[in-house]
């Protein structure tokens, strides 16, 4: 096994140990934080598929998080409380939105792509802001968490955490297969050289679109879990700064490695919680740390780690 899957599995095991550890030291909030970490790790993984492997810098990815979250609220209002049905609905809605917005955005490149995905993200944001039936700007609280086979099992934070962790493991495993399969190689090819891909007979657009849709669907599933974690749904989930945060996670962890995406999500959420507990102006510190990382460690934390390790060996 090469280093990356090992690191990913280590991260998953580390997360799995959080609830017993939290119980041992009597701090149940740790489990809540770990749940958030795992949820955002799924979202970061989904973004890594298009950004890391397809070089498609989407700045509207939080829209899918929000779509997933609202799918929970909408389903619940219509009496559908089963988690898997809600995930299905969320994935379907995300696929539709991604197919349409992707078909337009993927005609553009570079800065234009970044901005048009941002615009689509804002469109989704404003759509939900104006949806007064679901609280508009303020959002709406969920009556309860989703059910599993008609049971309210997920009301228990630990049970819910392991559910999220299972989803994360599944997302990681599936994506790991995908990026090493034929599709993944083609997607990576479009990242490396679009011209070369066309010159050996591929039409990059269709692979990019497929990846874009799939990525949106996975992120929507993360959104379903996020809504369940907070038991609240609001347009704030799809604010453009949230999309920025997802990109931050990837960059902190190192773009284009699935383990890096997960690590980046863990570190980002952890850092936010830590700094937020320390000062109400935590964003200032967070920004300074980010800036320092970009200016001095272009390959993110994994790059930093790699350089430190290499330096140690020398």
């Amino acid at each position: 096994m090469s280093a990356a899957p090992k690191a990913a599995i280590a991260l998953l095991i580390l997360l799995a140990l959080v609830p017993p550890a939290a119980a041992a030291i009597g701090d149940p909030f740790l489990t809540v934080i770990a749940t958030r970490m795992a949820v955002f790790a799924i979202a970061a993984l989904s973004l890594d598929l298009i950004l890391g492997y397809g070089a498609l810098v989407s700045f509207g990815h939080a829209a899918y998080l929000g779509l997933g979250a609202y799918a929970v609220a909408v389903c619940a209002r219509h009496g559908i409380t089963d988690l898997f049905l809600q995930m299905g609905a969320a994935a379907l809605a995300a696929a539709l939105f991604a197919a349409v917005s992707g078909a337009v955005s993927l005609r553009t490149r570079g800065i234009y792509f970044i901005m048009i995905t941002l615009a689509f993200g804002q469109m989704a944001y404003f759509f939900f802001v104006s949806l007064s039936a679901y609280g508009g700007d303020d959002g709406t609280a969920l009556a309860a968490r989703s059910t599993l086979f008609g049971r309210a099992w997920l009301e228990n934070d630990t049970a819910f955490f392991y559910m999220v962790l299972a989803c994360l493991a599944l997302a990681y495993g599936g994506l790991d297969r995908l990026v090493h399969a034929r599709f993944g190689r083609v997607l990576t090819g479009t990242r490396e050289s679009e011209l070369r891909m066309r010159a050996i007979g591929y039409r990059p657009f269709r692979y990019r679109l497929a990846a874009y849709v799939l990525s949106g669907m996975i992120c929507a599933v993360a959104g379903v879990l996020l809504a369940n974690q907070t038991e609240y749904v609001s347009p704030a989930y799809m604010a453009w700064t949230r999309s920025g945060e997802l990109i931050v996670m990837l960059l902190l962890g190192g773009v284009g490695t699935l383990a890096g995406a997960m690590a980046g999500a863990l570190v980002t959420v952890g850092l936010e919680e830590l700094l937020a507990g320390w000062s109400e102006h935590w964003r200032l510190c967070f920004g300074l740390i980010l800036l320092a990382v970009v200016l001095w460690s272009p390959a993110g934390l994994t790059g930093l780690l790699r350089r430190l390790l290499a330096g140690g060996r020398r």
Binding site: R177, L178, H180, A181, R182, F183, G184, R185, V186, G189, M197, I200, G201, Y202, Y207, A210
Partner: peptide
């Protein structure tokens, strides 16, 4: 090898395969 195999793949069946390791 990957560079060349990608070109071979382009003319040998669908690339919408998500599971089997291409390597």
């Amino acid at each position: 090898l990957e560079n060349v195999a990608l070109a071979v793949q382009g003319r040998s069946g669908s690339s919408f395969r998500f599971w089997r390791p291409v390597a």
